[in-house]
Nucleic acid binder design. Structure first.
Lengths: 331, 331
DNA sequence: TTAGCCATGTCCAACATTCGCGAAGTCGCA
DNA sequence: TGCGACTTCGCGAATGTTGGACATGGCTAA
């Protein structure tokens, strides 16, 4: 509980000199510097950064909004964000929104009340009007997201996946989507449709099964396909977790993956390559996204006008063992 | 950028009255209350919580130290902590230590410099001496951890797992451990040894393969067993991720799990029940641990002396498909 | 000698809020 | 009317730090 005054007293110098010794040591003689440091040791002084931040009118903290921290893709991005923040002297306030706008709003309040300097939002939805004047970066978002964002090209990436399946000979490609109104769902579905169209295949509504990006929903969605008169020979899933869930169901019902049915994911989470079979998926550069989002946010906090910055990072298609040509190609 | 003075001016009352209207409205007449609220609306006032915290000499934030946020067990615990913190008006500062004490120290600094009110540490290692006077709770720790802690009985839980394997008829039970000096490794290894001793089996050093709690290390460790003259008929892994990695390797080398070799995990992460085969494992009550840890920390921050609190929560053994009797029981 | 520079000290303002104290006003009751 | 009890509110202090304005005294270079 010692403060700067006690240090000054113990060192036999003025408060100003102690402050200078800490914030701009080049202005202080070595002699005084030593006295101050000794005194700091002696009284066990730790500067009260709460007071410093208050005076600077900055909290040196940023909020990271994430829909679900237990999703390994998000936790990877967050790890990168935290790493960068730590380097720059910023703290990361974790905001697990559980997809509710109420919780999201509570974290936005933290910025408005000066407890945080900005927000990184790891979800596609664009925020309500209240975001107007606060430093804000959207990561892992979608095309058309207003404001600064770091993302991948979901449409092109999904199209590439489906193109690949079609190139293997699949003509009946199912898709497991996220919730209908989720922007990721919309973008990726468009990529799917574009791929079908380019190959001259017709889009069939019954080949779309809705999930919510969890393994559990992937299982459920996969079950729906069994009720069709004709199963798809390949299933493109909008994320890895649903793909893993789907594979589990398909295998449990006696199908072999990929010999009987191919499955693809999206994200390339750590578990994908250890799965049986190892998952063919579209890798997102999670670390890069996190790092760049943090850097971008810091520049915005510094006052740069980057409100129109849109960074689209490349994805990498990782072909593993969960895909192969269909069992009975028509040709 | 409006402050309380502008509100006071706009409302025609004193600054103190505005402050009271916000923090203890029952002390203010309805008339003044209305004037204040109208003024707040009019000038778009948001209280500066940084100033409030400064004056209260509290930051209303806690640091959560985690060795690796991408581990789904930890992220589950963190989710529970965050949930509780949010309810109580506290923020969670994420501290991913990557197992380095340097990073850990930087986060401890945050408490000493008043940027956080306390620490929840999600790793077994006990901290250096500097933790003396700061509110501190250890969650997911081990027996013998000094200070307040919430944990499970690792020794008994591991013993129960190995007891079960032995009861199935296994006489040669391998174990994949964490790093040798990790307290979890030490405790769980003790449980393993106790179980062997109780069954009259001898402990063989070659049946211990060292990993580091990652899937990758689980793969590696499993490979070591192939170099033995006689493979174990069951492998007890000290966490789920290593078990999943081990299963991957065993299957890749042509063994069937569990028919040829049984495998068990620890934690019961979400992926365990979707794996092929679904993993037999010891479930830890992740949510409960997080919730209780947060509650305990808050009480300590409030000033209660709970330095000797040790809560040991029950685990639940979940038997799934990765275990069965050995291929050629001796009897 | 003097101008200029450097390290330091002194003093005060500023940051936004809360709290203790006392003043002013209101009400009820004798 | 007088008095005490109570409510409501304003004033000023305090929180720990930084930074600017300015003075001081010692030093060097011109």
């Amino acid at each position: 509980m010692s403060n700067i005054r006690e240090v000054a007293h113990a060192a036999g110098v003025s408060v100003a000199t102690v402050s200078r010794a800490l914030t701009s040591p080049e202005k202080v003689s070595e002699e005084s510097l030593k006295k101050v440091h000794d005194a700091i040791q002696a009284v066990g002084y730790r500067p009260n950064l709460l007071a410093r931040n208050f005076r600077a009118a900055k909290s040196f903290a940023v909020v990271v909004l994430v829909p679900d921290i237990t999703n390994p893709f998000f936790s990877q991005v967050i790890q990168a964000i935290e790493d960068r923040a730590q380097q720059k002297g910023y703290a990361v306030l974790l905001g697990d929104t559980r997809e509710t706008s109420k919780r999201e709003q509570e974290y936005v309040n933290r910025v408005e009340t000066r407890l945080a300097d900005g927000v990184i939002q790891l979800r596609p939805q664009s925020m309500s009007a209240s975001t107007q004047n606060i430093p804000w970066v959207n990561a892992c978002g979608c095309e058309g997201t207003p404001g600064p964002s770091i993302r991948v090209d979901n449409i092109a990436a999904t199209k590439a996946i489906v193109d690949y399946l079609i190139s293997l000979g699949h003509e009946r490609v199912g898709i497991i989507s996220g919730l209908k109104d989720n922007p990721h769902t919309i973008d990726r579905l468009q990529g799917y449709k574009e791929s079908l169209a380019a190959a001259g295949l017709v889009f069939e509504k019954e080949l779309v099964a809705e999930g919510d990006f969890t393994m559990w929903s992937g299982q459920n969605a996969a079950k729906q396909f069994f009720q069709l008169t004709q199963m798809p020979s390949a299933i493109c899933c909008m994320n890895d977790e649903m793909a893993l869930g789907a594979i589990q169901t398909l295998k449990a019902r006696g199908l072999r993956v990929p010999e009987d049915i191919s499955v693809t994911g999206f994200d390339d989470i750590n578990y994908a390559k250890y799965w049986d079979p190892a998952l063919t998926t579209m890798a997102q550069p999670a670390e890069e996204i996190g790092k760049l989002a943090m850097d971008l946010l810091l520049r915005i906090i510094e006052g740069e006008d980057l409100s129109k910055t849109q960074m689209v990072l490349p994805t990498e298609f990782v072909i593993r063992r969960s895909t192969c040509p269909p069992p009975h190609p028509r040709s």
